[in-house]
Each structure stands twice: as structure tokens, then as C-alpha cells.
Amino acid sequence: MSDMTATSSNERQLILFTLGTGSYGIPIENVFEIKKMGDITMVPKAPKYIEGVINLRGNVIPVIDLRKRFGMDKVEYTKKTKTIIVEVKKRQFGLIVDSVAEVVTLNNSQIEPSLPTVSGLKAEFINGIGKLDEKLVIILDITSILQSNEEILIQE
């Protein structure tokens, strides 16, 4: 799977999802598939944002609760709760999000560099801010989020 930087055209396709009131996007190149919530096997003594591991067609992959990762309050899983399977540097992860909205195509002119005040996230975790009609979409840099051990907080 290609790296997100490899996008050559001036358009970007994003998977939109929500966490609380916020709207976020992940470049579609990183997304492997979207799954309903299934059994998660808890792993003792794992980092606290790791919810556990799941069986993805015979492979055991870790699942991260993005709410926990961003220091947000825990909510009950609902029917809308989804696991987005992403692939970064040949490693697969599941990301638990409140709901998955849609796939959108943004023109590069619709994307602005990160504004920390808007996103509540450090610039290194953001790939840009997309403007969709009146809505702001925070495009996450999934690679750096997964590789960082630092605590990441989002103010809701």
C-alpha cells in the first residue's frame, strides 16, 4: 500500500469519521477496511490506549481506542461504533471511532495547513485542515500518531 505522501494529483480522498463532536479524516490510502465492532481480546499490561487485539482473517492485530488515545471520555459502544483498519508501514492497526461518515474528495485548495488552535492537536499529528462546506475536517497524520508514545490530548 502506498504512503500518503505518494498522492500525486491535487486531490485527496479521505475517510471521514467522528469522535465526540469533532470530524476527522484519514487519507484513504491508509485505510484497509472498515469493520463492525467484534470481539476484542484484552492484552494484559498493554499500553492503556490499546483496547486489545482482534482476529483479522487469521492475523492478530492491535486495536486502539482513539478516544482513549486522545484522552477523551469513554463512551459505550453503539451500533455506530466502528473499527477502521489502517495500514502503516506494513503494520496493521484497528482504530475505534464513534462513527464513520463518508468518503470525500477534497481539492488541495480546500486543505489548509494545521492550525493548532482549531484542532487542539499538535501540528505533527495533523496533515492539514480540510474545509468541507462549512465544516472543518482535521486530517490526521496516522503514521506519527501510531509511532508516537507521547500522550495526545484533544479538548472537546
Binding site: 470481539d39 481480546t41 492484552v43 494484559p44 499490561k45 498493554a46 499500553p47 490499546i50 487485539v53 482482534i54 482476529n55 487469521g58 492478530v60 492485530i61 492491535p62 503494520r91 496493521q92 492497526f93 501510531l146
Partner: peptide, 25 residues
């Protein structure tokens, strides 16, 4: 094998997928 984020986990050597799809550590 488990992903690197779980590698430092003492006491767990890996995982296995059982016949019914469940995971055993």
C-alpha cells in the same frame, strides 16, 4: 507474533487464533 506496540509486554509470548476465531494469548 504481536505488533511492536505490544512487544514489551512481559508474560505474553504471542497470540494464536483458535478454530472458532477467538484469540488466545
Amino acid at each position: 507474533g504481536l505488533d511492536d506496540v505490544l512487544k514489551n509486554n512481559e508474560g505474553v509470548a504471542g497470540a494464536a487464533v483458535l478454530g472458532d476465531g477467538r484469540i488466545a494469548l
